[in-house]
Design a protein around this nucleic acid. Sequence first.
RNA 1: GGCGAGGUAGCUCAGCUGGUUAGAGCGCGUGAUUCAUAAUCACGAGGUCGCGAGUUCAAGUCUCGCUCUCGCUACCA
Length: 677
Amino acid sequence: MTDFKRTLITTALPYANGPIHIGHLAGVYVPADIYARYLRLKNEDVIMIGGSDEHGVPITLKAKKEGLTPQDIVDRYHNIIKKSFREFGISFDVYSRTSSKTHHETASAFFKKLYDEGKFIEKTSEQYYDEENEQFLADRYIIGTCPKCGFEKAYGDQCESCGTSLSPAELISPMSMISGNQPVLKETKHWYLPLDQYEPWLKEWILEGHKEWKTNVYGQCKSWIDSGLQPRAVTRDLDWGVPVPVEGVEGKVLYVWFDAPIGYISATKELTPDWEKYWKSPETRMLHFIGKDNIVFHCVIFPSMLKAEGTYNLPENVPANEFLNLENDKISTSRNWAVWLHEYLEDFPGKEDVLKYVLTANAPETKDNDFTWKDFQNRNNNELVAVLGNFVNRALVLTNKYFEGKVPARGGLSSYDKETLAGIKKIKGEVEKSLDSFRIREALKNAMDLARLGNKYLADEEPWKVFKNDVARVKTIMNVCLQITANLTICLEPFLPFSMDKLRGFLNLKNMDWGRLGETGLLPVGHKVNAPTLLFEKIEDSVIEAQLKKLADTKKANEMAEATAVPAKDDIEFDDFMKMDIRVGTIIECEKVAKTKKLLKLQIDTGIDLRTVVSGIAEYYRPEELIGKQVSILVNLAPKKLRGIESQGMILCAENADGSLSIVQPDKKVKNGSEVR
RNA sequence: GGCGAGGUAGCUCAGCUGGUUAGAGCGCGUGAUUCAUAAUCACGAGGUCGCGAGUUCAAGUCUCGCUCUCGCUACCA
């Protein structure tokens, strides 16, 4: 392994269209913060970079919806995010934003260099264009009828009703969200990063060179690289973002995925004029802390950009976490299913460390995990309060009681004393080993063992009994306990910074380096300690119930919203309706279409003829149970090839709120070919 | 359908290159203890290591098939 002199830690840039929730924290910011604090405590040269990702289409849409400018939107969320991070104690050395001047200059220059050196390829393609407003429309700016579910307000990239991902060309009767007019297809030129050219290099660099990466990270990279990489557009027709710095080009910006990771560089520039040593010196180790959704960007795409540029370092490791669920359900910003950081800070003042602890102890390092309020309460009450807080309290209360708060001198040490003191160094080694391999959850457990060591020592030595006939021995015992307590302030500092600060207050102790962890004389004899207050407080059931009620209310509100039927469509003439030829037919044959999950191929006797229909209902019906059933079928829909099979019609289905499908059929058997109207 | 990750005690997870009675924390039970926020300490119960084959003297650990969960992906009329 290379000997690095400094570390650059980047944390995924949160998208500035919503506040931070526990999923972001558990996946990225808490582990990154712990690791950064650990390195700082070791006096290593480390910087931790963060910032808001403020470009991209969703922000422009939100702005439009609220009648504000995109800048208004990002200002709002950037401020909420930045404030909540600061209050929560995520120790960024700099928290920047991609709408900053520095970033625009940096991203622009980065693009320009690759452009000038011919690292991009140019491609012209047809995209929808709004003639009235004279601009190309991003996928999200196009609205139309979803070809699958008939939802009229599907976006060009995705139907929010059925969740299908789409391309703008698939929408039926597309409409510009800006003018309301029908857009026209028009040619536009864009630049692409030819990822395919980097494939052999990526293979070598990751698949051969970084087998030590986490299995989830390595596996996903391998999957992408092996399946063949495609050139990726780096520009977009949009007016919100970093303008493409090419002469004569207007109305184009850098694609948000291209500009966002450069934000790490910009933020570093804002932090220090010496930024280049963090990005370009081979003695610097770069780490990207991200969630699993970002693996491909940080392992394949961004490195390819850096490689193309040529002067930058590549990431040494990318410790990506899986996802955190909340009370057995996926965290979702749009469904308001989350514990929001800014709300937590209001509801639980002074309990920043409790959330950090719970999110770390239950971190989704190897697989998706579940956050429950009950677990939150249990870990606080049974671990922080009962194990850590209680030990500290015992040590200090006894010292105050027997020795007026002065650290007593040790006498001769028993072999058990020696063993206990040696245990501190052992724990230090374990914590280091875990942290060095990014096993943060394990590291926290290791560190907490120090408090367990103390509790056990106290229980075994029973100073409250010994005091009756051997005060000298009690002096030794309490000295050992206090040294353990002092060591806790170092050992747990990366994980519980606020609480350890408080504990240092109890002990009258200054901050100490990681290197001193394991020393048995951190507190000199005669040193005065204070009377302790509680390091952690129990959390009562009522508090947890209040949070659960809040979530239950959200769930209820969501159900109400789901129960509300999609609004009626515009009126049509009777003749329009009569254009549709819907018949009753009987399913004669039915089989799954190979290599698909949702498609069934059906032979249907429509009374007119026997025809083949492909339908996306395989998730709800098994082929054998459909044979012989009567269904309603739209027979005069233009045929379309799906998976190479020509589908000659559409089977009518009702879609439930959960997206499940139910075929519409006559309630009595009727003659095949009967018209439905 | 393809690919990736995961399926180990009630819960959350360790188990490296295959090797004595499969581990930890929490929860549960019993006992000890009272300095401490009824906290702590000891002991214990609890697992056919997703299912089925195979390789091997020996498999949670390797191979194959199946199955379930999550994610990515695919032309879901």
